[in-house]
Each structure stands twice: as C-alpha cells, then as structure tokens.
Amino acid sequence: MIINHPILGPRDAQEFVYLGDAALIDRPDGMTDGIEAFHTYAYLRDNPAGDHRELWYHEQGDRSWLVVTRNTVTHEITKVELARDVARAMGRST
C-alpha cells in the first residue's frame, strides 16, 4: 500500500508501523475517569468492513503518527491526517 503522507507525499506502507483504531487518541482523563472508561478505551474496538480510521506511525520516515482512513475491504485510502492535528481538533492539548 501507499500512504499519502500529509508532509512527505506518497510513501510505501512498509515504512510504517500499524497500531490500530484511531479511537486510541481519545484517551480518558486518568484522574477523573474510572476503570469503566479506561476499559472501553483499552479493549473495545469496532471492526468495520469498510472505512476505518487507524493509526500508522512513520517509523522509517519522519516519525509522524498519522490517522489514515482506509477501507478495510478495498484498501482504498481516502484521507490521511497528522494525528497531532486530529488530537488537537478533538480538544486534546496538554
């Protein structure tokens, strides 16, 4: 597969390490949310046949974490974003 890196352009997926569901960005607050919230966060995943937002790490590149929207059936990639931008858009900061 080819991932169209937002900064570096098309790069071979072999350069990346796959993590999984981009929902991992949405980490609960460790001081206010409890075990239930963290359990959901750590273990519960959707497994769609279709578009999936997932985290890829450009380990053999610029070390950017990316959110890649990929169709799990066709492998078509329709969107690639910097995970940092996605996190900020979700209200994550420090």
Binding site: L24, I25, W65, L82
Partner: peptide
C-alpha cells in the same frame, strides 16, 4: 528501545499534542 521510543512519540503526538 525501539518500542518505547514509538510509544513516547504516540503519547507526545496523539495524547498530549501541545506539551
């Protein structure tokens, strides 16, 4: 060594992007 570095980058970019 490699895995921890990747994990720290994940924390830095995805969890606390403004640190």
């Amino acid at each position: 060594a490699v895995g921890v570095f990747r994990h720290l980058e994940f924390c830095r970019q995805c969890l606390w992007p403004d640190m």
